[in-house]
Amino acid sequence: MKRLLTAALGGLLALGLAACGTSAAPASAGAEPVSVVLGWYPTAESGGFYAAEEQGLFAQQGLDVDIQPGGPQVSQTQVVASGRADFGLSDATTVANAKATGIPIVAVAALFQENPVGVMVHADSGAQDWKDLAGRTWYVQTGQLGQEWVKRSQGIDFTTAAYNGSIATFVHDDAAVQQGWPTNEAYTAQKEGVQTRFLSYASAGYNPYNDVIFTTEDFLRDNPEKVRSFLDATMRGWSAYMSDTALAEKVNATLQQENPQLDAAANWFAWDAQRQFLTAGDGATALGAMTPARWSTLVDQMTQLGALEPGLDPASLFDTSALPTVPAPTTLPPAP
């Protein structure tokens, strides 16, 4: 959802906003400047970058990293392609669409190994699987490919209504189906006293990488060691953020300073819930991992759904040559 918002708006306003980033620590003498524009405002979803800053991991790699906030008026692909940031975060579909339109970006890591986007229903609604959601009203964003893949792969149909960012209708409609993340909308529903059952689009076979770190083809070609250093510190930061609650407390406090609208309890809920998606599959042995098979499947699915013209080479979308092997933490403690 957030990615659709960011893709819908951009231009000069996006470039101006992205230039207003912040760093979590003073620059080290002689450090090389590097900038990254987040997929959204600072939250637990970007905590690993702030953890790397807090631990001095970027500085150890000789980098002075500027962490720029995203938001609904920031187009990460435009910001990075224009050189206003060296790295950006978005989802794999955005990377594919950008490449198809001639924007020369390339994915270098993927944080969410399992895509957390999906839909939720009331736990007591009787719905157990996708077939049970046929004929219901789905509150979703127009153009979301996940719901279209569900129709195709599960052989069901349903009515859609625009999701405007509020789940108020869902809360009061026991039969409604609500698009969202298990780290965000599920928490909001829980606060409203509604227990939910979540079905990810990944469980229906639509599983594009999410929170993909990308850069330009030129930057990767000209700065392979800088890319490697940035990714090494970033993945170690994510590993520590997921496994060290004392560090996470410091980072979450920083996130609230950077994003005063952030709800502390909601952020801890997201910190806990998101970890299973970061460490799933290949992420268990290498945080940020990407495979040719996953990218090939995505291109094939987007082509089937009419979101891409035939002929896009999946191999042109990603490059793991600078990605170090940083395993996921073996222990994931509960939130304090």
Score class of each variant (00 low, 15 high):
Ala248Tyr: 04
Glu258Val: 07
Asp173Asn: 14
Ala293Asp: 15
Asp132Gln: 11
Phe214Ala: 05
Val117Gly: 01
Ser321Asn: 11
Leu255Gln: 03
Leu111His: 13
Ala59Thr: 12
Leu305Cys: 10
Asn184Tyr: 04
Arg294Met: 09
Phe158Pro: 03
Asn267Val: 01
Leu13Asn: 08
Glu192Arg: 15
Glu45Arg: 10
Ala284Met: 07
Gln256Trp: 02
Ser200Gly: 13
Pro310Gln: 10
Pro292Lys: 11
Ala176Gly: 04
Gly165Lys: 04
Pro116Phe: 03
Ala19Glu: 14
Ala189Val: 03
Pro333Ile: 02
Ser229Leu: 03
Asp232Tyr: 11
Ala31Val: 07
Thr101Gln: 15
Phe49Thr: 00
Ala202Lys: 08
Gln73Lys: 10
Asp211Tyr: 11
Thr188Ser: 10
Thr142Trp: 09
Ser166Gln: 10
Thr137Leu: 09
Asp282Phe: 02
Ala92Phe: 10
Thr325Cys: 06
Tyr206Trp: 15
Lys226Arg: 15
Phe277Trp: 13
Val171Tyr: 00
Gln113Met: 11
Gln178Thr: 01
Glu114Met: 11
Thr94His: 07
Pro310Ala: 12
Ala44Ser: 14
Ala7Lys: 08
Ala52Asp: 07
Gly83Ile: 09
Asp91Met: 02
Gln274Trp: 00
Gly155Phe: 08
Leu4Lys: 03
Thr325Gln: 15
Leu63Trp: 01
Val74Pro: 01
Asn164Thr: 12
Thr160Val: 12
Ala14Lys: 00
Ala176Asn: 01
Phe49Arg: 00
Asp91Ala: 05
Ala264Thr: 08
Gln179Lys: 00
Thr142Arg: 14
Met1Trp: 02
Tyr139Gly: 03
Phe158Tyr: 14
Asp173Trp: 02
Pro329Tyr: 09
Tyr187Phe: 15
Glu148Pro: 03
Pro116Leu: 07
Ala335Lys: 05
Ala265Leu: 09
Glu148Lys: 12
Met290Ala: 10
Gly306Phe: 08
Gly48Lys: 02
Gln147Trp: 06
Ser125Lys: 14
Asp64Trp: 07
Ala81Asn: 10
Pro69Cys: 09
Ala19Arg: 15
Gly311Gln: 10
Asp129Gly: 15
Gln195Thr: 14
Gly283Asp: 11
Gln55Leu: 15
Ala52Arg: 02
Tyr163Ser: 01
Phe214Leu: 11
Leu9His: 14
Leu57Asp: 06
Pro72Ala: 10
Thr169Ile: 03
Val121Ile: 13
Phe170Lys: 02
Gln256Ile: 13
